[in-house]
C-alpha cells in the first residue's frame, strides 16, 4: 500500500513543470519496461509449447497491434534512456547551468529516435 501511495504521489503531474514531468516519465517508463521484461519472458516461453504456438503468437504481432506495441516499446526505451542520460549528468552536479537545454535535448533526441524507428517499421511493414 505504501509503495502504491508513493507511486501515486510521484505521478501527480497536474500543474507541474517539464522537469517534474520528465521525472515522472522516467519512473513510469522504467516500471513499464520492467513489466515488459516479464511479458517478453512469457512470450519467449511459448517456444516450449512448440513451433505452431510460437508462430501463432508472432502472427498476432505482425498486425497493426504489433506495430503499436513496438512503437510504444521504442518510445519507452528511448525516453527512459535519454532522460536517464540527462539525469546522470545533472545528478553528478555537471552542466547544471544548461540543465533546461539538456532536458529539451533529451526529449528531442528520444522523440527523434522514436519517429525514425516508426518510419523504418512502417516502411518494411
Amino acid at each position: 500500500m505504501k509503495v502504491l501511495r508513493a507511486l501515486a504521489e510521484w505521478m501527480r503531474v497536474k500543474g507541474r513543470s517539464a522537469e517534474y514531468l520528465s521525472f515522472a516519465v522516467r519512473r513510469a517508463s522504467g516500471l513499464l519496461l520492467a513489466a515488459y521484461l516479464v511479458v517478453h519472458m512469457v512470450d519467449i516461453s511459448t517456444l516450449l509449447l512448440g513451433e505452431e504456438a510460437y508462430n501463432a503468437l508472432l502472427e498476432v504481432f505482425h498486425g497493426p497491434l504489433g506495430l503499436v506495441f513496438d512503437a510504444t516499446l521504442i518510445a519507452l526505451l528511448s525516453l527512459h534512456g535519454a532522460l536517464g542520460l540527462y539525469s546522470m549528468i545533472v545528478e553528478a552536479g555537471l552542466a547544471l547551468r544548461w540543465r533546461r537545454a539538456l532536458l529539451a535535448l533529451a526529449w528531442a533526441g528520444a522523440l527523434a529516435v522514436t519517429a525514425a524507428a516508426v518510419w523504418v517499421m512502417l516502411s518494411v511493414w
Partner: peptide
C-alpha cells in the same frame, strides 16, 4: 536520496 525532479527549484 534526491531523484532530481527539480520541482523544488521551479
Amino acid at each position: 536520496s534526491c531523484h532530481a525532479a527539480l520541482e523544488c527549484s521551479v
